[in-house]
Write a protein that binds this DNA or RNA. Sequence first.
DNA 1: AGCAAGATTAGC
DNA 2: CTAATCTTGCTA
Length: 219
Amino acid sequence: MFSHHHATMAPGQAPNKRARKTTAALFKGHTIDVARRLIGATLERRIPRGEPDAGTLVRGRIVETEAYLPLVDPSCHAYRGRTKRNAVMFGDPGRAYVYFIYGSHYCLNVTTERPGTGAAVLIRAVEPIAGVAAMRRRRLAGVPDHRLASGPGNLCRAFSIDRRCDGKDLRSGEMRIIAASKQRPIVKAAKRVGLSVAQDWPLRFYDAGSRSVSKTPAP
DNA sequence: AGCAAGATTAGC
DNA sequence: CTAATCTTGCTA
């Protein structure tokens, strides 16, 4: 079916040195920089076997993120130390940290900072690029294309992301993030959503020109 | 073992 | 504005 020279290369991965290098650099540096840099990057996922649309490549352009800072941020899941749930936050950067919330939703994060330091960036919304039909099948009827993966829970639903994805390396494989190759969009900052502490910290970043940015609750 | 809270969402 | 829904982590 696929003929790759390297066994670790995932189907659909560009065998391009420059692209790989840029992608590796995506997760380096401070959490806030990573959060900004992720705007305009591509989230890509291959729908797992045994599910509807298995094998389909689903893709979206990241348009909204939130930074959860190391050490000083009381709203960061790592703030009160390492637990079973947040363990991957304390591991290597560039991994998926996926958690379950409110009894029904998953949220996808990218781990940041060096091993031993817990921090992450929440991916809040992507603009669908490919696999729109597969996304739609997972979502409620009547949702317009541009809102299929808008909001962290909706995004995970559309991309079939759940706790099985926790700890996965996002640089390659069936779920990965590819750095934006061309120009970066205008990135604006705002308060993070849904918090009870550190509510005013301007650590939410979004593409001001995208319709796929999530609708935020009124202040 | 029991319990309260939660990085959300859809529906009224 | 609020109910839904259940895992996690903390306390006893």
